[in-house]
Design a protein around this nucleic acid. Structure first.
Length: 288
DNA sequence: ATCCAGGGCGGGT
DNA sequence: ACCCGCCCTGGA
């Protein structure tokens, strides 16, 4: 771990509020000056902007340059996605303009699995609180500028907690799911490294669904936010809402089936439906 | 008080 | 294949 700083000039498609508030991450917090501080796998990072320049600074294990490029998906040209999706219709155009600075973060697979198991039938402040408490309980402490931060626990670290330990941290009925999934990963009943190397989206989904607490929606989130599967389309209440309003037009929103939404997304957005989902989600959450 | 929030599970048809 | 009730918790 060492302190490092990096300034990137003229970064395209990069807005802090868009990136950190489009529903993909739980460990980034906005500071009073508009910057964000987050705990990621390799340490603590602060991100701020000065016009079109982005400033990264923090305490990290590894080279800040490669960490930032990987984490913020900086090799990917989001203008290309925007061009393709803008062709779909005016709704997409509007949501792309609204969330012009969105990027899909490349987050840690293990952290995403547990985080989205926690997200089930839950709200964002509570999800964030639970993750913070888990990390503080068994994660490694990192001090930066006199503040203590806690890394997300490794598989081994999390496996130290019993079901009742987990319940005491406020996870509710998700306690057993977290415990069981941790055990499965610990015992290599599911091999995360193998998943990261795989290119077969359906096979990855099949494997993830074996984990306790991982259903279709959670699996899609994991694939999109940790495995760069841009063809995954997570359907939560907001996406259901916006997809029905814009494209499906069912009088009773609760009656729209996941299958219908997936089908529509597939036809409209094809193999970058995950990117479209992020623009739509961000737009819907801010405007409905 | 009652409902709901970024679902999943288990037990029905 | 769908459908449904239930599940911790805490804030509105």
């Amino acid at each position: 771990m060492k302190e490092q700083k990096l300034i990137l000039k003229n970064v395209d498609c990069f807005e802090l509020d868009h990136i950190f508030d489009c529903g993909q991450c739980f460990r980034w917090n906005k500071q009073e000056d508009g910057s964000y501080i987050g705990v990621i796998g390799s340490g603590v990072l602060k991100v701020s902007k000065n016009k079109n320049d982005v400033i990264f600074e923090g305490i990290l294990s590894g080279d800040i340059n490669s960490i930032v490029y990987e984490y913020f998906d900086l090799e990917t040209d989001y203008n290309q996605f925007k061009d393709v999706l803008s062709e779909v219709d005016d709704n997409m155009k509007k949501s792309i303009v609204f969330g012009s600075g969105i990027r899909i973060l490349n987050q840690d697979l293990w952290e995403m699995i547990i985080s989205f198991i926690i997200s089930a039938n839950n709200n964002i402040p509570r999800i964030k609180g639970i993750i913070d408490r888990l990390s503080k309980k068994v994660g490694k402490m990192v001090e930066w500028n006199g503040v203590e931060y806690y890394l997300f626990p490794t598989v081994e670290e999390l496996s130290k907690l019993s079901v009742s330990d987990l319940r005491a941290l406020g996870t509710g009925f998700r306690d057993k799911r977290i415990y069981n999934t941790t055990q499965m990963v610990l015992k290599k009943e599911i091999d995360l490294e193998k998943l990261e190397r795989s290119n077969d989206t359906e096979k990855i989904r099949e494997e993830l669904l074996k984990l306790d607490g991982v259903g279709e929606k959670v699996a899609d989130c994991i694939m999109l936010f940790a495995l760069k599967r841009f063809d995954a389309f997570p359907i939560d209440v907001w996406v259901r809402r916006v997809m029905n309003t814009l494209y499906i037009h069912n009088e009773d929103e609760t009656k729209v089936s996941k299958k219908d939404i997936k089908e529509a997304a597939n036809n409209l957005f094809g193999d970058i439906q995950g990117i479209a989902q992020q623009y739509l989600f961000y737009w819907a959450r801010s405007n409905f």
